[in-house]
Write a protein that binds this DNA or RNA. Structure first.
Length: 835
DNA sequence: GTGCGTGCCCTACC
DNA sequence: ACCGGTAGGGCACGCAC
């Protein structure tokens, strides 16, 4: 037996069965850049939580009984291997629990079914998945460095000769491992990355042909294609490799992926397009897509209902669909309105290159293939650069959640919160709660909504010298401060020093004894603070990513407890979080007013107020004083001091509009919230006009120049001098077309697209404009005037004036008692009161 | 049939 | 498959005339 010692960083986890047992197969690298496969196993078990006050004798008998359980599952014989008694916690309460060992993880379900015994209260811990169970058991955490030693299997017959059939530098059976402390500081890891992108002549999966595939890696760029131009322009296209036909293209793709042998194969929407397309064409043309390290083909998992295709896994190579990760980790903080590769790349990479992808049409004969190659390659290059940019975040997400990158890159934030909890339960001696079953989920979904945040009704106007205070991680710190969670919820039973709040007319209580959920959240918030502080001293991409991961976790914890799919769902905890936070912010508003400031606005966790006769430093002192009076870990911070601020009325009536304001910072920066300016379902013309008006009004302190500007815009509209692209309205299709009850303009636009055989699915951004009806057409409804963005036609002057630009400008001028309708002719329906 | 008010659907934002 | 609050466009529908 040959043994080896090496350092090792795990990247991908998979498992297989051999002689009835489960083995984990970890693919990773060592610091020499060698690719390793590590085979290991771990104990497999589930928990049976015993009923209270069972006598010792009865427990012993029960253990003997369970030990005798034998199963015959589809001809496979298996049995309970051992049973041990432990003192554990479940939802914070001490319990006696049996640890029931089995041979194979897949049998746990069937064993649990056999445990419907009177002595057993609950069965838990058999729905985690083997990889998660393994990581919990052996603490071999993704993307951490380990010193390992094991038996070399490269020429071994063991495990069905796995060592001989796997394209790795070394395959070993793990014997010992030790974590290398602070390893990320000592050993850096630079992954081998290959980005890819395909071009096809038909967008529906597999229904057209793949025309070309591009590949991009650090020092490698390639376009494989079977489409040649008739004449060459002389442009340098030496990255292009020609093949005979589509089948050869697929062969070449496989060949290059195998040759490059990347750690990560990265695409953009590749779970939903590129990889399934490649599979469909490979099946059709009978070309095996053997890109796995064991020469297996990609495996496709089922997607959820209405959410398209599921993830696509390649054995030994981590397949990443960057779009998924961007959606969960970045999109809420991004400016981009669509998550198209070009827009996202231009935001993250400052790639200003205008990237018009040439539209392929099978009817076009003299196609400019050379341009097409270039665009195809560019998409892979962008994907590669985006991956490099996001790599620190992927790395830290994986380390913090302790789940493989393949999973964390696809999970939503609720799964991330849950993974973090699951992998930290052992410190609390906690048995994991089960995932809710179908009936529980539907029951939870039918629950009434609970009362949420407080929003202050502003008095419309323009204000000067404004300060804004924010609660840092408001809901997170509330959960920690008041110990709000499923395991600390007492219902209507009071305890000594318990936290009480009235929800829906009933008083409920939460224990004072810290629960594991708030405790974990407290650690998360403290760690976030620590890394943020470290960042202030020294900027570092990995620290930034870590800080960001903890911030996102802290922010998602509240939503998690109110989420119907959560293991640790607790509607009362979620409702109490909103309730306590609401009480707290109202108290602070009172205090600010008592200190002779004047609060003008507040929403959820922020308060804007006039500093009046006071100085900024005095206001900061006041902030300190406020903080000293806040309970627990709750904390207020200064968001900023602002020169001016604007609040407007609602469209209907004279009361102030909530969630709509604009602030001009001392540094000249504008902070605009809620206005049409920031809404993508308004046309760029209306948005830009409003933005300019807000800017002028805030900078000048009056409306005069803004009015001049507005008049110019109106003139241009009437003279049809506005570009079509400034009139496009973008609206997201939120569900399948057939489910719409109201036929709105964007539904009509989507139907038009469908008629053109463009595949329309939920999540598509529908782009359209409103066209001028011809005389006598009598098209009254907006939806009767919808044109697709590339459809020819004149724009509807009346619509863009009276339904877009003027409504966006109107209530800003109203603040200055200027009625734009009186001043500007062209608003057709003048009301009697206007004369 | 047209005009108008109201309720509800729907999206996107905080 | 993260929560609730809010604005506001637009359609559906009932009613008056």
């Amino acid at each position: 037996m040959k043994t080896e010692k090496t350092d090792f960083i795990p990247l991908d986890y998979d498992y297989f069965d051999f002689e009835g047992r489960n083995y984990i197969k970890i693919i990773g690298r060592n610091s020499q850049g060698k690719r390793l496969c590590v085979i290991d196993s771990c104990e497999v078990y589930l928990w049976a939580i015993l009923k209270d006050s069972l006598e010792k004798d009865r427990i012993s008998k029960l253990i003997e009984k369970i030990k005798k359980i034998k199963l015959n599952i589809k001809g496979r014989q298996t049995k309970v291997e051992n049973v041990e008694l432990y003192d554990k916690n479940f939802l914070g309460k001490p319990v006696k629990a049996l640890k029931i060992f089995a041979t194979n993880y897949k049998d746990l379900h069937d064993i649990a079914d056999k445990l419907g015994l009177p002595e057993i209260e609950m069965r838990r811990g058999y729905d985690l998945g083997f990889a998660t169970h393994y990581i919990m058991e052996k603490k071999i955490i993704p993307l951490n460095w380990y010193e390992i030693s094991g038996e070399v299997l490269d020429h071994s017959e063991e495990f069905g000769k796995i060592g001989m059939h796997l394209d790795v530098d070394m395959c070993i059976k793990l014997l010992e491992k030790k974590e290398i402390a602070d390893s990320d500081k000592k050993i850096s890891f630079e992954p081998k990355v290959l980005a890819y992108d395909i071009e096809t002549d038909e967008i529906k999966i597999g229904e057209g042909e793949i025309l070309m595939v591009s590949l991009a890696s650090q020092n490698f760029k390639k376009v494989i294609t079977w489409k040649k131009p008739k004449t060459f322009s002389g442009k340098n296209i030496d990255y292009v490799e020609y093949v005979k036909n589509e089948a050869e293209l697929l062969d070449k793709f496989v060949e290059y992926v195998r040759k490059m042998s990347p750690d990560f194969l990265v695409g953009y929407f590749s779970d939903g397009f590129d990889l399934p397309y490649l599979r469909a064409r490979a099946e059709k043309l009978k070309v095996p897509l053997t890109i796995g390290l064991d020469e297996s083909q990609p495996r496709f998992f089922r997607g959820g209902i209405g959410r398209g295709l599921g993830p696509a896994k390649i054995s030994g190579i981590v397949h990443i669909d960057l779009l998924k990760f961007i959606q969960t980790a970045y999109s809420q903080y991004m400016q981009s309105e669509t998550l198209s590769l070009n827009e996202v790349a231009s935001e993250f990479l400052n790639d200003s290159k205008k990237n018009f992808k040439p539209k392929f049409s099978s009817k076009t004969h003299d196609h400019n293939w050379e341009d097409y190659y270039e665009y195809n390659l560019h998409d892979s290059v962008l994907t590669l650069r985006l991956f490099e940019k996001m790599w620190p975040d992927l790395l830290e997400f994986s380390r913090v959640m302790q789940e493989p990158i393949f999973d964390v890159s696809r999970n939503g934030m609720s799964s991330n919160v849950e993974d973090y909890i699951i992998h930290n339960l052992e410190r609390f001696n906690e048995i994991p709660e089960k995932r809710p079953v179908h009936e529980e989920i539907s029951g939870r979904r039918q629950m009434e909504k609970y009362e949420g945040a407080f929003v202050f009704e502003p008095v419309p106007g323009i204000y000067e010298n404004i300060a804004v205070f924010d609660f840092t991680s408001s809901y997170g710190t509330t959960i920690v401060t008041y110990n709000l969670s499923k395991s600390t919820f007492l219902g209507n039973k009071k305890e000594k020093d318990s936290h009480s709040i009235v929800l829906e007319g009933k008083e409920v209580h939460f224990s004072k004894k810290p629960g594991f959920f708030p405790e974990m959240l407290k650690e998360i918030i403290i760690l976030r603070k620590k890394y943020k502080q470290e960042l202030k001293n020294k900027e570092d991409a990995v620290t930034r990513a870590r800080s960001n991961a903890f911030k996102l976790l802290a922010n998602a914890a509240y939503g998690y407890q109110g989420f119907f799919g959560a293991r640790y769902y607790c509607r009362e905890a979620a409702a109490a979080t909103a309730g306590f936070a609401k009480k707290m912010i109202k108290e602070v508003i009172e205090k600010i007013n008592k200190a002779t400031y004047k609060v003008i606005y507040s929403d959820t966790d922020s308060i804007a107020f006039l500093i009046q006769d006071k100085t900024e430093s005095k206001t900061l002192e006041f902030l300190k004083k406020l903080n000293s009076q806040l309970p627990g870990i709750m904390e207020l911070e200064l968001e900023g001091f602002f020169k001016r601020g604007l609040w407007v009325t609602k469209r209907t009536g004279t009361i102030g509009a909530k969630k709509k304001y604009a602030l001009l910072g001392k540094d000249g920066r504008l902070k605009i919230r809620g206005f049409e300016t920031v809404r993508r379902d308004w046309c760029p013309l209306a948005r830009e006009t409003q933005n300019k008006i807000i800017k002028l009004v805030l900078e000048e302190g009056n409306e005069k120049r803004a009015l001049v500007y507005l008049k110019e815009v109106i003139k241009k509209i009437k003279q049809r001098k506005i570009d079509k692209e400034d009139l496009i309205i973008k609206t997201m299709l939120q569900k399948p077309l057939s489910e719409y009850k109201n036929i709105t303009p964007h539904v009509i636009a989507a139907k038009k697209m469908q008629e053109k055989e463009l595949p329309i699915t939920a999540g598509n951004l529908i782009e359209y404009y409103i066209a001028q009806p011809k005389d006598g057409e009598g098209k009254k409804l907006v939806r009767e005037r919808v044109n697709l963005s590339d459809e020819k036609g004149e724009y509807d002057i009346d619509y863009y004036l009276n339904k877009q630009v003027l409504p966006a400008a109107e209530n800003i001028f109203q603040v200055f008692n200027v009625n734009v309708n009186e001043i500007i002719e062209g608003k057709k329906q003048m009301k009697l009161g206007d004369f």
